[in-house]
Design a protein around this nucleic acid. Structure first.
Lengths: 163, 163
DNA sequence: TATTGTTATACTCTATAACTATA
DNA sequence: TATAGTTATAGAGTATAACAATA
């Protein structure tokens, strides 16, 4: 980007007072920045947020199925297929046919996948702590905890509606 | 290799302990739910999150340019064009050529746009307060305020990096 | 030369219907 | 019939290069 240089006196004066009180707006703004940053952090490992998340879940839960993974990742099953394809082609995970129910795969991480997962996790943790430096630790924990509670809370409400 | 071993009982036991400590993961999960919900709330007004946000900015800041709007919305100028096209075709806003600098448009909301904006805003506020019922008011304010601070904080860091 | 708005384009993420193979 | 995984496809949102008009 070149210099910001006075677009007009109005540039610095754009008011967002109405929107700034809305949770959805603030969530989107904050998430956009964090998402962009996380993407950069994962780039050296050739992982995206979705492939990274899937890999961590598989490492932590060896043997889980694609349906289970899609459910906990809050994405549709069809969208998970190419994510798993990509991880499998890179030999980071393996699809193992379940003998007792040949419809599904038991997903497991390879040694290579486990190593990459560990390295990527370290990088993400380090990067996030750098990003958040300036915010005190208590506020950070409070934020993460509130977001988690929010997700549970809203998900519960949504499931009520669908029931 | 290892046995697949009873995956069925595993469904409710998928662990997300590693990811749950990561800000990016929690942000994405919470934002996904809120985004979906906000989309539903705006549907009766035939607005999406992006057209809604642009409309509110224009109502609050009559005369601002597309470049300015794109900047405060954190999106690229090309992507704003179709958003403005849509709002203009629905006669909710108008593009006015600036006489002193004929390269840019001064964006203004029509009466119809102002009315729709007000109604949509009321619906969003009402819906968000319903969504958040169960969370105490102090936590809600704290969350919104922390998200805002986070955005400013990260944006500042990013601008440092690019400077 | 630089900036505003624009076109074209491509990539990612998401959502749905319909198919196959198994149960 | 129901479920797991898959294919195809369409719609959003996002990002970059390049252009015309204007400064």
């Amino acid at each position: 980007m070149s210099k910001p240089q006075q677009i007009s006196a109005q540039a610095a004066l754009v008011s967002e007072s109405t929107l700034s009180q809305l949770l959805g707006y603030q969530m989107k703004r904050a998430f956009n920045v964090i998402q962009g940053d996380l993407t950069q952090t994962l780039k050296p490992f050739e992982l995206r947020m979705l492939t990274f998340t899937a890999l961590v879940f598989i490492v932590d839960n060896p043997g889980l199925s694609q349906s289970q993974l899609a459910q906990v990742m809050d994405i549709e099953r069809p969208n998970l297929v190419i994510i798993i394809d990509e991880l499998e082609q890179r030999r980071l995970i393996a699809r193992n046919r379940v003998q007792t129910d040949r419809r599904m795969y038991a997903l497991t991480a390879t040694m290579s996948g486990q190593r990459l997962c560990k390295k990527a996790l370290e990088a993400v943790r380090k990067h996030e702590s750098q990003l958040l430096n300036g915010l005190d630790a208590a506020t950070t924990r409070q934020l993460i905890s509130t977001l988690s509670m929010l997700h549970e809370h809203l998900n519960h409400k949504n499931n009520e509606g669908k029931a």
